[in-house]
Design a protein around this nucleic acid. Sequence first.
DNA 1: TTTAATCATGTATATAATTACATGTTTTAA
DNA 2: TTAAAACATGTAATTATATACATGATTAAA
Lengths: 190, 190
Amino acid sequence: MAQKNKLKYIILGLLGEHDLTGYDIAKAFTADIGEFWNANHSQIYPLLKRLETAGLITHQLQLSGEKLEKKVYSLTAAGQAQLSDWLHEPTTELTASKDEFVLKLYFVQNADDPMLQPMLTEQLRLHQAKLAHLQKQMTRKFSAVASKTDNYGHFLILQHAIEREQGYSDWLAQTLAQKTLRAAAARNHL
Amino acid sequence: MAQKNKLKYIILGLLGEHDLTGYDIAKAFTADIGEFWNANHSQIYPLLKRLETAGLITHQLQLSGEKLEKKVYSLTAAGQAQLSDWLHEPTTELTASKDEFVLKLYFVQNADDPMLQPMLTEQLRLHQAKLAHLQKQMTRKFSAVASKTDNYGHFLILQHAIEREQGYSDWLAQTLAQKTLRAAAARNHL
DNA sequence: TTTAATCATGTATATAATTACATGTTTTAA
DNA sequence: TTAAAACATGTAATTATATACATGATTAAA
């Protein structure tokens, strides 16, 4: 097993909110959920079939126009139960982050390595862009006070993502600043 | 392709520091690198063979005791070049975090959901434990001033990991505190 | 009106990664 | 001295996931 099939629970979780088509589910990964998970439609459609065979979801055909048949999936009682079980069971594994930049950094031994500065600068740019994007999301989705308690989980993770990107950017910026300081100190010692 | 084979570069990177056996490489994932990446020996051994076929690494047999043959791998010039290329090319993909707790939280709609408090409390405990572990690592490995510039990349990512866990814990603690406040306010309104 | 974008659903292929299976040696501690 | 822990290297089976292939309908814009 390459992972403990969390996509299954994402599908169950999404269907717990609304009935959705496979296409809708795939789209969710380019929107909200894409912020912290991803999946392709080629993974989603077969899994939907498996989940239906397992009795966790069902579908109804719905015509869109003259010919186009949509499969609108919904959660069964069994599916609802498994979703609830998953939500209630403790989450004990803290997954390794698998951040490629961090990985590269691990192999930079020397503090004076000339590639360090461009590496840090570029990552800072990327994470600041991500931060700005998340902040825009936050404003768009949760500017109204009421919405915060309504979609509370979503609000919380967006808040967390923003804090995380802020922290990431701070770390990079501070490292760059210290690099500059060290470089100046080195020049003075010549 | 399930991922852009970063394990390959981890192996090249590790061999760029010292010659190592497959066993040593596997062990590295239970130590330092395990903090932000993981891999099993069943993935490592076949990959070592592929990398050797591709001419990026070579090995020498070394006897340990009477019979036990170790394969000590080392980096070739071609391997060194590919490692350097990877390190120098920009890291543009910010990987989705795939944090199961965050995923669960996404599906908690209501701020007053009774499962929220135990969920948050348990995660806080886990992340505080992780934080304490990372801080111990930092002390053990980088208490000497000289070591910081020596293994600079490692120092930086450890520092980053600590800040990240601190931020994660803060977020959880703050969310719990606000929950308590809201509960008290609700009682007063009765 | 025609063309591009989006909707909609699949399959095939390849690779990545986890768990389990499998075997034997060497070292350390009881 | 013997038993457990750690060293050491593999393969098999399964599942996950990404990219590419494949097809067609509907809607919105040029």
